[in-house]
């Protein structure tokens, strides 16, 4: 019996990869946001102790980081493939385009996924370079010497343009997730009409909570320091 002509890079499997990595990234963002909330306490030691948990993981941290980078890469490469494929599949565009309404889920969010995605990528590079690989300050807590990440974060968020940038990008993240969360379930073949609307609404909530959560922290620090 010859093997079935399935492929991990077929239109169906590619979107499943994108959905799995997208959902995993949402999981990462939720953990990341919970960590950020410690910043709101204004307690530098608490935040530094928290971030030191990661720093002291040693080589295990590299494993986590490599996984994260791999997930981003799979997500990005498949996303760009979808966007390029779309141009190839419709070389001549319509003179007039209207939304059909009714059961359609076509929104500003759904048609701008590649733009919000690419801007998130640009932000991500800036974010990692300016914080993870940013200035290294030291602090000593309970006799242990560790990185004073809190100082660097506060320094960053005292700059109005950085805060403004975060606010804009996190709003775009909200748009990406508004379509993305629901879309991921459909890509995985997991949606049924009876709970499709519910998943969409949960997605909108997750989008709003993550966007507001991430943009609130820089604003809070800016106003309180």
């Amino acid at each position: 019996m010859p093997a079935l002509p399935t492929s991990l890079w077929s239109s169906v499997a590619r979107k499943a990869l994108m959905a799995l990595t997208g959902l995993a990234l949402i999981g990462f963002l939720i953990v990341h946001l919970l960590g950020n909330l410690i910043l709101l306490s204004g307690n530098a030691d608490a935040f530094n102790l928290y971030s030191n948990i990661y720093a002291s993981m040693g080589s295990f941290l590299y494993v986590i980081e490599a996984g994260l980078v791999a997930f981003f890469l799979i997500h990005i490469v498949s996303g760009i493939t979808v966007a390029l494929g779309k141009m190839k599949a419709r070389p001549v565009s319509y003179k007039k385009v209207a939304n059909a309404g009714g059961p359609s889920r076509k929104t500003v969010s759904s048609v701008t996924m590649i733009y919000t995605g690419v801007l998130l990528l640009v932000f991500l590079v800036f974010h990692v370079v300016s914080l993870k690989y940013g200035a290294h300050y030291d602090t000593t807590i309970g006799g242990e010497k560790m990185r004073d990440l809190y100082k660097l974060v506060v320094e960053n968020f005292q700059q109005p343009y950085i805060v403004a940038g975060y606010v804009i990008i996190m709003t775009l993240l909200g748009f990406h997730l508004r379509h993305g969360f629901w879309s991921a379930f459909q890509s995985l073949g997991a949606l049924q009409p009876r709970f499709s609307n519910m998943i969409y609404i949960i997605g909108v909530f997750i989008a709003i909570i993550l966007a507001i959560g991430f943009l609130f922290v820089p604003i809070w620090i800016f106003l309180n320091s």
Binding site: S11, V12, A16, T81, A89, S104, K106, S110, G189, A190
Partner: peptide, 29 residues
């Protein structure tokens, strides 16, 4: 040479037979 599905669901909205994208979910399964 058709494009990928981004789950816009415009198809269901214009389909003269109102075929649901739940069938797309089944195709994936």
């Amino acid at each position: 040479g058709f494009g990928d599905c981004s789950n816009h669901a415009e198809c269901e909205a214009v389909c003269p037979k109102e075929i649901s994208i739940t069938h797309i979910a089944r195709m994936k399964r």
